[in-house]
Simulated assay, not measured.
Amino acid sequence: MSEQQDWNALSDDQFRAVFRSWVEANCPAHLRFMRKQRPVFDEVSEWYHKLADKGWLSPLWPQEYGGMGLDAAKHIVYVEEWARLGCPRIPDHGIGLTGPLLIQYGTQAQKDFFLPRILSGEHVWCQGYSEPNAGSDLASLRTSARRDGDDFIVNGQKIWTTLAHCANWILLLVRTSTDEAKRQKGITVLLVDMTTAGCTVRPIPNLRNEADFCEVFFDNVRVPAANVVGEIDQGWALAKAVLGHERIFLGAPSRPEYAIKRLERLAQDRGAFDDPGFVARYAKLRLDLYDLSAAFERFARVLRAGGVLGADVSVLKIFCSELYQRITEEMLTVAGEEARLWDDLHTGAGDVDAMNLYLDSRAPTIFGGSNEIQKGVLAKGVLGLPSSF
């Protein structure tokens, strides 16, 4: 049965202790610190349902909808402990995107129908935003939705759709009008059942030969008009609103922290700490990680105090993703000729998935708004430089 209490009434340390104790006792050991960064629903459904039964699946949803109702401070603790304890990432588009969107903008009928099915795992969601010619420049999207009586007819293509091959619903941005002067106008949010005729998913294998991403094609897909969220042609503001909370967590130091521990394990086993050159490079990585953690904490304090993050938070994502790459590159340097191996490298202190982490580190500089886009945000929003486009 779902547990409800005012978690925000606890101190951060008290909540951390409660959360840590329950997770350590309930998160299945075989799912902790998974080699696979984005497991599909069936691989982690056991953990998903344990969280849902406890009422801890959706930390930011209000308790009236089955969530924990955490404030920003407690949510940061939740995310930090999740990473520290090695909990597997669950398919979370329903929890992190669709759910909050419906809670804020959905009709009562939409809330009553969709929210319980997200919590039960009956509906597994993916996010249909990016297109072949509309990724970082999302306002250029062209997937169309034409009104036909009580339905919309959807045609077009989405790409880089994470875990679409294991989802049965998609949160879709479509163009419902081309008459507006600004490209951000005329965009609408639709909730689309992916089992509908005309919806086709094609996985895209990544460097690790895993199908994290997919292409999704829409060929005269009929969607009830009742599945529009908010107002027709006004979906741009909704899309931006539900992405706002992502910005700080894209720069959380958890991935670099995990990687540097593996680097240390490998370096100790291979005798790299006897090399002054390695020690100097390692010291720089370690100091950069301290700086990243301090920067993350500075932005976290703003949220804890009830503040709003500015454009400068983009520096976290850039710093974090580039540091993650540098750590994993050093790991391959230490591995030497073994770096070519896909299999884990054995050490006296445990295995190190060196090549797996190196390949995983390629993606974060692209997803969530590429680092080039983030630098543009900093240039305009912090330095006040003119736009170059």
Rank of each mutant, 00 (worst) to 15 (best):
I327K: 01
G86N: 03
G235D: 00
D274E: 07
N206R: 07
F319I: 02
R146S: 10
L141I: 08
G198E: 14
F299T: 00
M355C: 04
F319C: 05
R362S: 06
V18Q: 01
G121N: 03
F213E: 00
P203D: 05
Y48F: 09
L51R: 12
T200Q: 08
R286L: 02
G271I: 13
T188E: 06
V313A: 06
Q5G: 06
R255N: 12
S314T: 03
V279N: 09
L345S: 11
R270G: 13
S136P: 10
R265F: 03
D6P: 13
R281I: 00
P364M: 06
E3G: 07
Q234C: 01
H49P: 05
I366P: 00
G384I: 01
Q325P: 00
P253G: 05
R35E: 14
W342R: 09
A272L: 02
F296I: 10
I170E: 15
L357W: 12
W169Q: 07
R298M: 01
L102T: 01
D219E: 11
N133S: 03
E122G: 09
L172K: 03
Y282S: 04
K74D: 08
G376P: 11
H346Y: 15
L309I: 14
I327W: 00
G376K: 02
N371Y: 04
D6R: 10
Y258S: 10
H165E: 06
E131Y: 02
T188G: 07
E64A: 09
D179M: 07
S321Q: 07
C27V: 15
G307D: 01
K54T: 13
V334Y: 05
V242D: 08
A311M: 02
P62E: 08
D275K: 08
F367P: 08
D6L: 04
V174M: 11
V315N: 12
D269P: 09
A280M: 01
R222E: 11
I260N: 00
E231I: 10
I187H: 13
S130A: 14
S254F: 12
E337D: 13
L332I: 00
T161A: 08
Q234S: 02
D343T: 13
R147E: 02
R117N: 15
V229C: 02
Q14M: 02
T347K: 07
L190C: 10
A17D: 03
V79P: 09
F367K: 04
C199L: 14
S130D: 15
V124L: 14
G69W: 11
V229I: 03
D219W: 09
H245V: 10
P88E: 14
N371L: 10
Q184V: 08
A181M: 06
Y324S: 04
F152N: 04
M331Q: 04
L292P: 09
